[in-house]
Design a protein around this nucleic acid. Sequence first.
DNA 1: AGCTAACTTAAGAACTGCTTAAGAAATACT
DNA 2: AGTATTTCTTAAGCAGTTCTTAAGTTAGCT
Lengths: 223, 223
Amino acid sequence: MKVLLVEDSSSLRRSISIGLQNLGFTVDQTSDGSEGLSMALTGDYDVVILDIMLPSIDGLTVLKTLRSSHKDTRVLLLSAKSQAEDKVKGLLTGADDYLTKPFSFDELHARLLSLLRRGTLRKDIDKVELAGLILDMQLKTLRFGNKFIDLTPNEYKIVECLFTNQNTIVTPEKLSEHLAGQYDAVSKNSIEAHLSSARKKAKLAGVELPIQTKRGFGYMITP
Amino acid sequence: MKVLLVEDSSSLRRSISIGLQNLGFTVDQTSDGSEGLSMALTGDYDVVILDIMLPSIDGLTVLKTLRSSHKDTRVLLLSAKSQAEDKVKGLLTGADDYLTKPFSFDELHARLLSLLRRGTLRKDIDKVELAGLILDMQLKTLRFGNKFIDLTPNEYKIVECLFTNQNTIVTPEKLSEHLAGQYDAVSKNSIEAHLSSARKKAKLAGVELPIQTKRGFGYMITP
DNA sequence: AGCTAACTTAAGAACTGCTTAAGAAATACT
DNA sequence: AGTATTTCTTAAGCAGTTCTTAAGTTAGCT
């Protein structure tokens, strides 16, 4: 479990870092905002613990940049001020949680765990990337680079079902169930038509959907 | 973070005080009710930890006086009795939380943190700005520049729900729940009608509400 | 080659969400 | 309490989109 700690105060940074390391986390740390940003962008961190007040760039700006570059690492903001303005702004900018100084190490630890357990405030985990295609289950969108492939609801649902069932054959029956529920069926031909349309739209955007058809069985995503 | 501790028992007072100071709080303390009251009124404390049984003036009276002078410092009451009567009376008088002796230091600490968090949240989560539109959750108003867009309660609630859920799709079901509570649903068409009306009013004021409809899924605020 | 499954396309059917208006319900006022 | 006003819900029409269907085409397998 990799954590990036961006914190100005060296004493706090050291104590948090040591504490987390004792708990088995891998911790990278920096005191500088812009360095923190580039580390967050390039490194593959599970969580970034980010102080708001930092030298060079402040935490909120780091967070904003991080989010606008579509990095979906989870971010836990730290703030010395109890000013709620900060909190609101932070959470709106895309923070997943927020902690006001002073806080106990136990509290930090608890938040970190709850953040890592996916059952928390944000659900940016609901993203699947594959061959340059990014499926966002939150926004119900598929995009290739920064180009959005505009799918209709059923087209999207088919793609979603396949993206989330990589390495397994998905039968038309299963797709039908995914589209219409258990009691209302969608014809196989209808699914074929949707998928055809989705493939066409993707091609127009410059990609092939990585969906193989397994003749006689169904469809499969090739990793 | 400044804390005022008003507690009769000197041993308890000392141990709490030292514990909190170790955690980074600034702690002022007194054993006397009337002294505590004047300190609470003049000093700028984030939280007052207030024992109910005190010399000179009892804790509830201190609390009442504090509230009637419109000080909105958070107050955490301590009581030796676990009698529910006290608890109810305390919370009714305006306490923010209540702790029964004996309690562990960790428990106190946790309550304190949640109180500080709650306090800041409550105070300030009341405004969201977006594309020139300012949503004031305190006053339940939406305004564009200095022009108020006069929304009905349900229209407002819909806009509020969407403004506070940026970057996520909000389904009609969720909106319905937000309007009517969990058990009484509001029809989808009714929501559509409200939103239509809200959009119309905004347009009349010279803005488009930044609410996208994601056909087949719900609505979303565009950042 | 022959058979069949899957793909594609286009047209009409079905559906979705927006809007408007009118009656019902709730709220405020006298 | 009764009345006036506002707000909420419902229904219907409309425009635009999406889904399904069916027929023709392509591709895979033996």
